[in-house]
Amino acid sequence: MTVIFGLAALLAFLGGVGVVTSRRTLYAALSLVLNMVALAVLFLLLDAQFLAAVQIIVYAGAVMVLFVFIIALLAPGAEERVRPLELRVLLGGLAAVVFTVVVGRLTLNGITVGPNGQLHGGLGPFNPVTVNAHGQVQTLGEQLFTTFLLPFEVTSVLLLVAAVGAVYLSRRRRPGEEE
């Protein structure tokens, strides 16, 4: 387990670094794919099989395919080098630090560190034991359509709006253009 975790975490890290440092856009996108697949392995280790499968199907299999497609077709040139102390670099760094602190704080919620560095924490209502007893997909589906029904529906409306907008933009004719 620890070995697999180490490998997957290393790959995810390398993928993340690759996204930022690759000079060629296609390689940056492919690094992101590597990062996502490695994340799916981490989900598997956390006993979240459904999440792992969906992570690959949706992100690596669908979203990133379109990214790679468009990058390869538009063939953008190499990225321009940014100077290290530019404003956007500083802002980006600040955002990264804030994000790390917030996510770290949320992750450590309810977890205390023992004297020898071991972690203690209580299990919530949705822990691996209860979720696996009820079925992962079943639990997720029930929660999605009861507790989180409103956010779920709002998200689907958002997607619908995006789809309608995309169709409108691609069908719009310039004045004088024949149908």
């Binding site: 799916a40 459904f50 499968a53 969906v54 690959i56 199907i57 690596a60 299999g61 669908a62 395919v65």
Partner: peptide, 25 residues
């Protein structure tokens, strides 16, 4: 022996697109 075996197959086969596209590109 996965509980979501079918989704796993769909996930892995959806990665085959990369091979075809990158090979051609």
């Amino acid at each position: 022996h996965l509980n979501v075996g079918l989704l796993f197959i769909l996930a892995v086969t959806s990665l085959g697109v990369y091979a075809i596209f990158l090979g051609g590109w």
